[in-house]
């Protein structure tokens, strides 16, 4: 099946983003396709390259990056949510004259239209957050 996963919570603030990761990994292992991972609202924090974990803690962001890369998943962080929360790619950093960018390369900044498109194109949409 073609699945889309929506994540709207930050990593570590709640378990939701981790659950989304485990669900996505299981879906892929079972042979399903992830049409799109969409990170919205506080979920955009999952795409920060600068997030740094203690060595003895599960590194969710590293796990996302590996999963996205190994399965070539279309992973999008909502651009308006991301900019507000200080998650910028090089292009946005240049546009707003910010000194740095921090969007992990496995993610793309794009608009909510990508979530609506995913809702139309996918067989199922599963949301994680709160």
């Amino acid at each position: 099946m073609k699945l889309t996963v929506l994540v709207h919570s930050a990593p570590y603030s709640s378990q939701a983003a981790y659950s989304a990761y485990r669900f996505s990994a299981s879906a892929l292992a079972a042979g399903h396709e992830i049409y799109r991972l969409f990170f919205y609202y506080d979920g955009v924090h999952n795409s920060s390259l600068l997030s740094t974990q203690a060595q003895d803690e599960f590194d969710l962001i590293a796990a996302w990056r590996t999963l996205i890369e190994s399965h070539q998943i279309d992973a999008i962080s909502c651009v308006s949510s991301a900019l507000k929360r200080g998650i910028l790619d090089a292009q946005e950093a240049a546009r707003y004259e910010k000194p740095a960018s921090n969007l992990a390369e496995q993610f793309t900044l794009s608009g909510l239209g990508q979530l609506v498109d995913a809702s139309i194109e996918s067989d199922r949409v599963v949301s994680f957050g709160g």
């Binding site: 609202y41 909510l112 239209g113 979530l115 609506v116 498109d117 809702s119 139309i120």
Partner: peptide, 19 residues
């Protein structure tokens, strides 16, 4: 909380797609 605004933004985006 910000969820209400976030939900409204989703509604408006979906509306643009004429769903």
């Amino acid at each position: 909380h910000g969820q209400a605004k976030a939900c409204l933004d989703m509604v408006l985006s979906a509306a643009v797609f004429e769903q």
